[in-house]
């Protein structure tokens, strides 16, 4: 057993940097692998809701289906339309993908754990920014550029409409989403996600104090990640496939990855802001509770997807500007009055 404090400070610093690198790699790998279980889950949920079985033939209960899909996507031809803006077309999926990964730099996953024998405390986040929530909302918002540029560069009217709708939707709902978060920030007196979670410990979850805020957050979140009933940008009925209509192979896979990770981001944020993060009954470690809550939210999104029809675009705008925005402002006002 050796003590880290007595070691060479230079060495300690190198170890710290290494630790951060390891964390970044682990988080990115997990995020890259996420679409595999999520597509499987989505298809199974869809199947069972529609009284089908979902994928069943690849492996036991179709468990290998995501891998089959992955192999298929890898070997498909990467088509770039002749009149597309080639450079933008190629860069757009990456622009969409990078921000949703960058968000996880500040997302905490659980309480810090102490590694036995070397007494080193390892925090379950990459960095604890003092403006964490602001950073998450800002960076997640950048992701829509990828969608807009992808739609624009495709040189296809459907893709362009998908991109335009996505931008309009993002502008309308980002406001309500952020305002819904303000109530939580006022309650916990901090913008740091770690502090927000800590302020909710011992079952003082924000959902109990901010039900309206949570409700606005949930609806705006669904709109933000373009899922039914607000999946205007990829509305199959009117736009073919929306902004990724012209994409194929791995570039399409990047868009899919973006969407799934964005869904996880919104679920994670909902858990962190309103459901006490890793707070839960003591018999399981905090991170397990965290994962259970996030998966429950993902299930809710999938469940809603196969239950509701799609809203019309003008209805979408009406909900965003005329209902959610005033409601969220009112929520902030009331929260402020109660706190005083």
């Amino acid at each position: 057993m050796f003590d880290l404090i007595n070691m060479n400070p230079m060495l300690v610093m190198i170890l710290e940097v290494l630790l951060i690198c390891v964390k970044v790699v682990v988080v990115s790998l997990i995020l890259f692998m996420l679409p595999l279980p999520l597509t499987y889950m989505e298809r199974k949920v869809a199947g069972h809701i529609q009284v089908r079985l979902g994928p069943f033939r690849t492996g036991p209960h179709g468990i290998l289906q995501p891998f089959a899909d992955m192999i298929k996507l890898m070997f498909k031809e990467d088509i770039v339309p002749a009149k597309a803006d080639k450079w933008l077309f190629k860069i757009a999926p990456v622009i969409a993908m990078v921000p949703v990964f960058a968000v996880y730099a500040t997302v905490p996953f659980g309480e810090s754990i102490t590694i036995p024998y070397i007494n080193k405390e390892i925090t379950m986040y990459i960095s604890d920014m003092n403006v964490g929530i602001l950073y998450v909302l800002a960076i997640a918002g950048i992701s829509v550029y990828g969608i807009i540029l992808g739609g624009w560069a495709s040189n296809s009217k459907y893709a362009l409409f998908g991109g335009l709708r996505s931008s309009a939707q993002m502008i309308s709902y980002e406001l309500a989403l952020s305002f819904a978060c303000v109530g939580v920030v006022m309650l916990s007196n901090s913008l740091s996600l770690v502090d927000i979670v800590k302020s909710q410990s011992n079952w003082r979850w924000n959902i109990l104090y901010q039900p309206v805020g949570f409700f606005i957050f949930l609806i705006a979140g669904i709109a933000e990640i373009n899922r039914i009933p607000f999946d205007m940008p990829e509305d199959e009925g009117t736009l073919g496939a929306g902004y990724h209509a012209e994409y194929s192979a791995m570039r399409f896979a990047f868009f899919m990855l973006t969407e799934y990770v964005a869904m996880v981001t919104i679920s994670t944020l909902a858990v962190l802001l309103f459901f006490g993060g890793w707070d839960g009954p003591g018999f399981l470690p905090g991170i397990v509770w965290f994962v259970i809550k996030v998966v429950a939210f993902i299930y809710l999104f999938m469940w809603a997807r196969f239950t509701y029809p799609r809203y019309r675009f003008d209805q979408l705008m009406t909900i965003g500007w005329k209902i959610l925005l005033p409601l969220s402002l009112l929520n902030i006002l009331i929260t402020g009055l109660v706190i005083i």
């Binding site: 949920v45 529609q50 239950t307």
Partner: peptide
């Protein structure tokens, strides 16, 4: 109510 309906179908017997 809609969610409850689909949730019920999730655990119903498949017709496949």
């Amino acid at each position: 109510q809609g969610l409850i309906v689909t949730f019920g179908y999730t655990f119903s017997k498949t017709i496949t």
